[in-house]
């Protein structure tokens, strides 16, 4: 938890959005969605494919404009005349799914400098912040001047994440950052993300369809289904609705099921357990 004095960074206020408004396959991707990101908070945004989570994500840094409703950043309406939306894109860093597919430069270092240069930093500043960003994502020194295309999948992804971090965002939004990585790469990346939150005080929004990914890390979980926000609460409270989650095609963390089974079998255990450590303690508590 970010403490009691939470400061609101970003507000999405009753936004609706529709794709393909005049075409044959129009559909509402977002329907009256309200959503808040606090300073230094780790939010897990969860939903099944097509639930509108990626659409919502793109609304937050003005890549898509809502049909209805508006978005406030630091108390300012981002669609007000004269608002600098490019600066907003710097402050709200967005890492798309498979971000390694956006790489294009000849060296890793130039790749990471692309963002800072675009946002008007001079050469020296860009290089310094690129250097810091590459360090932060844990890439080894020797790959600075390698072509990004020669790196492994996991490393490419780190380069892409570094290229967003280099512009010094205040909120970092990531769409399925662990998709397609092996378990080891997954774990390393999640650790890196957590360390970013702790060392930088960054607010993080992690978009995912997997509960396991976010259960441990998130301060708050937002569940989306068919363009609506269904739950917006602390992880344990959200997981208490595990039956409803299942109906939406989402699953609660595995340990919850174990505990539910135990309870059904007559053991008096808590059922709001999310990870294996907690489960161990709880089981030990009742057997001893």
């Amino acid at each position: 938890m970010a403490g009691d004095k939470k400061k609101i960074k970003l507000i999405a206020d009753h936004i609706s959005f529709e794709y393909d408004k005049s075409g044959a396959n129009r559909h509402k991707a977002l329907d009256d969605v309200s959503f808040v990101v606090n300073e230094g908070e780790f939010v897990g945004l969860i939903g099944h494919t097509g639930s509108g989570k990626s659409t919502l994500m793109q609304q937050l840094n003005a890549l898509l404009k809502p049909d209805k409703g508006t978005i406030y950043y630091d108390g300012l309406d981002i669609y007000e005349k004269g608002y600098d939306r490019k600066e907003l894109r710097r402050r709200v860093g967005l890492v798309f799914q498979y971000p390694e597919h956006q790489l294009f430069e000849d060296t890793v270092f130039n790749e990471v400098c692309f963002g800072p240069k675009n946002f008007g930093m001079d050469k020296k500043q860009s290089e310094l912040s690129a250097y810091a960003a590459i360090k932060k994502v844990g890439l080894p020194d020797e790959c600075f001047y390698h072509s990004p295309f020669d790196l492994s999948g996991g490393q490419k992804r780190r380069v892409a994440i570094a290229s967003v971090l280099a512009v010094k965002p205040e909120i970092l939004i990531m769409d399925e950052p662990t998709a397609g990585l092996d378990p080891k790469g997954r774990e390393e990346l999640m650790e890196m993300i957590l360390s970013l939150k702790e060392s930088e005080g960054l607010s993080i929004v992690l978009v995912s369809h997997s509960m396991e990914d976010v259960a441990k890390l998130a301060d708050r979980i937002v569940v989306m289904d068919k363009g609506h926000i269904v739950y917006d609460d602390e992880p344990k409270k959200v997981f208490a609705h595990y039956k409803e989650l299942e109906e939406m095609g989402l699953a609660a963390p595995e340990m919850m099921y174990v505990m539910q089974e135990l309870k059904a079998a007559g053991f008096n255990v808590r059922t709001d357990v999310t990870d294996i450590e907690e489960a161990k303690e709880e089981i030990l508590r009742i057997v001893t």
Partner: peptide
């Protein structure tokens, strides 16, 4: 794909 890449570069400040 073009749409997605353009958006990703916009998010990195491309103009």
């Amino acid at each position: 794909e073009t749409d997605r890449i353009m958006k990703a570069q916009l998010a990195r400040g491309a103009d």
